[in-house]
Design a protein around this nucleic acid. Structure first.
Lengths: 404, 404
DNA sequence: GCGGCTAAGTTCATGACCTGCAGGAAGCCC
DNA sequence: GGGCTTCCTGCAGGTCATGAACTTAGCCGC
C-alpha cells in the first residue's frame, strides 16, 4: 500500500493532469464538456484551463455553436508546444523519429545495421546521431524536446538508468540508459520494444478504450505487453510480459532461452518453419524468414503438410492466448507482430474459436481478440509516447514553465 | 488512465488513510515517527491523529522514553473499535469467524456440508446463521461490525453483487452477493478463496512486505492470487488468477475444465494420484485424497514409481512457476495449498532449482520462492481482511461517525 | 435593432486543508 | 531549580476547489 501524503499542491497537479489528459485523449473539448468529463466544477475548469492556455500547452481550436446560447470554445493540446523523439533499436536497424504532441511524424532517420551482433556503442552512436539529425531536419528547437523514448528488443531492467539484456543482439547487462544519457541533455526512457508497440496500439490502435489488455506480438520471437488498469504493467524490475517463454509443451522443443516447450519455440516464425521442415515440408533456402513463412501459408491449400503445420500453430497459439485469458482476465487481446498478423489476417475466426475451447468460459466471454492496426514502424511511435505520458501524468512541465 | 478530479476532501481522506494504514501496518507508532513515515508535517499528523483519537479509531498505547526528552506516546488502531467477519464457503464446510481489528479471532462456527453439490440456498443459510451465531457468541455489538468477507471456491465475478461459478460445488451463475445481502444489513464482499488466502498470506504470512507477488495454491485444484503494486489484481471482471488452467502440456491429460494439458491436471493432488495409478502405483482405496498423497510421498524412497511421479510433479510445478516468473516478474512467489505445502516442505530447494532452469535468468534472479506460513483456516481470515482494507482505504468510517 | 432567451464562461467570497514556526509540555541531568 | 532535549500543538499564512452571482455571446421574434 502506498504510504505517501497528499498536499494541496498534489491536488492541483492531479487536477491539471486530469484536465490535460482529457483534452489530449478526447479530442477538442469545450470547457463545459471538460467539466462534465472530469466532474470538476466549472470554476475550476476555467481556472486550470486559463493556466494551461497562458503556458501555451493548450490552445483554442475554433468554436461550436450551441443551440441558442453562447458558442462553446473548443480546446486542444497545442501540437507545437513541445516535441518528442522515439527511437527503435532493432536487430537490423536503428530508426529515430520526431513527433509533435499530436504524434505527427516530422522527420525520420534510419541507420541499417549489418552485423548480427552490433556493439552497444554503435547503437548508442546511431541513436544519438539520429536524435540530432531529426531535430535538425524538422527544425525543432532543442529545448522544446520533452524527451526521447528508446525501444530495444530485449529485457530492459528499470526504466530509469535502464540495463538491457538482449540475446538477439548479443548484449548482456548493457547500461543503455546511462550510455545514452551521457551523450545528450534530453531525458531518456528505455523500454522493451514489445511494450512500446503495445503502448502505441493502446493509444492509437486496436487497444483504444481498453483498460485491461494484452498486446501479443508474434514474429521471429514472441512477446507481450501487459496493460492493467490503463497502465503498462512491468513487475518488480520491469521485465514482465515474457509470454514467449511460458511452457506450453513440457519436455517439448528446445528454445533458445535454454528451456524447452516454450510457446516461442512453437509459434515463433522460426519455430513454425522448423516444424514445417521436420514434418517434411520444403523451404526455399533462398527465401528469408518472412518470404518462407508467406510461402508456407500459401501452400496450405495444396500441401497437407503445410495445412497441418498451420493448424497446429493455431492450436499452440490458442493455448498461449488461453493462458493469458485465464491468468489476466483482460478485456481485450490484440495480436500483432509480422507473422502474428499474417496468421491473424487469414485465421482470426479459427483462432478465436480455438481459444474458446481452451480458456475458461467466464473470462473467455469477457475478452475480445483483435488484430493490431499499426505496423511495425509503430515501435518508435510507442517509444515516443513515453515522454508524452510523463507530460500528461504531471499535468504539464514542472516549475510552471511558460512558453514563448 | 483515470479521469477523476481530486478535491480538498479527497486529500484529507487520503492523508487519514495514510496515517491510519501506517499505524495499522507498522505497529504502535508515535506521532513523531508517523511524521517521518508519512512525510506529513508534524502539525498535520497531530491534527489527523487528534481526529482519529476523538473518533475512537485510534488509541494511545503506553509511551517510550526518548533519551533525554519528552517520551513519545505510542498510538495503535483500537482493536475494539470495530469488528469484521470472515466466512469460508468450501466444498465440505462453511466456516464463519469474527475478528476484532487486530484480527484476533473472537468466535468461530463451522457447519459441515455432506452433499457434494450443496444448494446455494444452503450455503447462504449457513453463512447468515454463522454470522448471527459468532456475533452473539463474541458479544459484539452488531452496529460495530464493519462488514463480512465471504470466500468461495470458484470464479467470482464482480466484487459488488458477486456472481459465482463454482464447478466443484455445481454452481452456475449464482448471485451469491445479492442473496447474502438480502439476508443482512452488514456489508458483504465476496471473493475467490484463493484470493482471500493470498490476502491473508500477504498481510500476515510469507508475503509480508512484498508489493508484486503471487500466492500459488496447490491442493486438489490449483489456483493463484496475483498481487501487483501492493493490491490484489482482479482483471476486468475479477476472475484473474486462474493459474491452474494454463496449458503446460498441449494435447496432454484432460482437465475437468474441458481443456487438456492444464497445470492442474498434472500437479493438482487428484492429477498426481491419477498419474501414480497410471504408472502402476497402488493407492489404497480406503484412503482419502490427502492420506493417499502423503502415502505417495512416503513411498518415494522405496518405490521407483513414486519417486518418478514426484520428480515429474516437481518439474511440472516448476514449469508453472516459471510461467509466473516470466509473465509477472514478481518479487516473491508463495507456495501454499495442502498438497503444495506437503511437496514444498520436502522439496523446496529442488523446486527452486527446477524453476531456475526453466525461467529466464533475469526475472528468476529477482524472485524468491517461499512456503505459505498460514494454514487452511486463513481463508476466512483473509476474507475478513476485505472490510478492514476498506476501512484503511477510506481512512476510517464515512460521515466521520464517532465512537461510543 | 432591441429586449428576451439560452447557454458558456468568469469572478469572488468562502471554507477546507497543509505547512512553517513559535511556543508549550514533559521528562532528564547537574 | 535551571538548562537541555525531545515531543507535541496552536496559529498565521498560503493554496486550492466550490457554489452562487455575474458577464459574455449568440439567436429569435417582433
Amino acid at each position: 500500500m502506498d504510504v505517501r501524503r497528499t498536499t494541496v499542491r498534489d491536488m492541483r497537479r492531479s487536477n491539471r493532469s486530469v484536465i490535460l489528459t482529457s483534452i489530449y485523449r478526447n479530442g477538442p473539448l469545450s470547457r463545459y464538456e471538460l467539466g462534465h468529463e472530469t466532474s470538476l466544477s466549472a470554476a475550476s475548469v476555467s481556472n486550470l484551463v486559463g493556466e494551461l492556455l497562458a503556458e501555451g500547452l493548450v490552445e483554442e481550436a475554433g468554436s461550436v455553436e450551441s443551440d441558442g446560447g453562447r458558442p462553446r470554445v473548443l480546446l486542444r493540446v497545442a501540437p507545437k508546444f513541445a516535441y518528442v523523439v522515439g527511437a527503435e533499436v532493432g536487430e537490423t536497424r536503428v530508426r529515430v523519429e520526431v513527433f509533435d504532441l499530436s504524434m505527427k511524424v516530422l522527420a525520420t532517420t534510419v541507420y541499417p545495421i549489418d552485423t548480427p551482433t552490433p556493439a552497444p556503442e554503435l547503437a548508442v552512436k546511431y541513436v544519438l546521431q539520429g536524435l540530432e539529425s531529426v531535430i535538425n531536419a524538422a527544425e525543432v528547437p532543442k529545448d522544446r524536446v520533452l524527451g526521447m523514448g528508446v525501444a530495444v528488443a530485449g529485457v530492459v531492467e528499470g526504466p530509469a538508468d535502464a540495463v538491457v539484456d538482449a540475446q538477439t543482439l548479443g548484449w548482456d547487462s548493457v547500461p543503455l540508459g546511462a550510455m545514452l544519457a551521457a551523450g545528450t541533455d534530453i531525458p531518456i526512457q528505455v523500454d522493451n520494444g514489445a511494450n512500446t508497440l503495445g503502448q502505441a496500439e493502446m493509444w492509437f490502435g486496436a487497444g483504444r478504450g481498453a483498460t485491461d489488455a494484452v498486446v501479443a506480438l508474434v514474429g521471429s520471437g514472441v512477446g507481450a505487453a501487459l496493460v492493467t488498469g490503463g497502465t503498462s504493467y512491468r513487475g518488480t524490475r520491469s521485465s514482465a510480459g515474457e509470454w514467449g517463454h511460458t511452457t506450453i509443451m513440457y519436455g517439448g522443443r528446445r528454445c533458445r532461452c535454454g528451456s524447452d516447450g516454450c510457446l516461442e519455440a512453437y509459434v515463433g516464425a522460426e519455430g513454425v518453419l522448423d516444424r514445417y521442415r521436420l514434418a517434411g515440408g520444403v523451404v526455399d533456402p533462398g527465401d528469408d524468414e518472412e518470404s518462407a513463412f508467406i510461402a508456407l501459408l500459401d501452400d496450405v491449400d495444396s500441401s497437407g503438410i503445410a495445412a497441418k503445420v498451420v493448424q497446429d500453430t493455431i492450436g499452440y497459439l490458442a493455448a498461449g492466448f488461453a493462458d493469458l485469458v485465464n491468468l489476466f482476465n483482460p478485456e481485450r487481446i490484440v495480436l500483432g507482430g509480422w507473422s502474428g498478423l499474417l496468421l491473424g489476417e487469414r485465421y482470426l475466426p479459427q483462432i478465436r474459436e480455438a481459444v474458446g475451447k481452451r480458456a475458461l468460459r467466464q473470462p473467455y466471454a469477457q475478452v475480445s481478440l483483435e488484430l493490431c492496426e499499426l505496423g511495425r514502424d509503430a515501435v518508435a511511435l510507442g517509444a515516443a509516447t513515453l515522454p508524452v505520458l510523463h507530460l500528461l501524468r504531471n499535468g504539464g512541465l514542472p516549475h510552471h514553465q511558460a512558453a514563448s
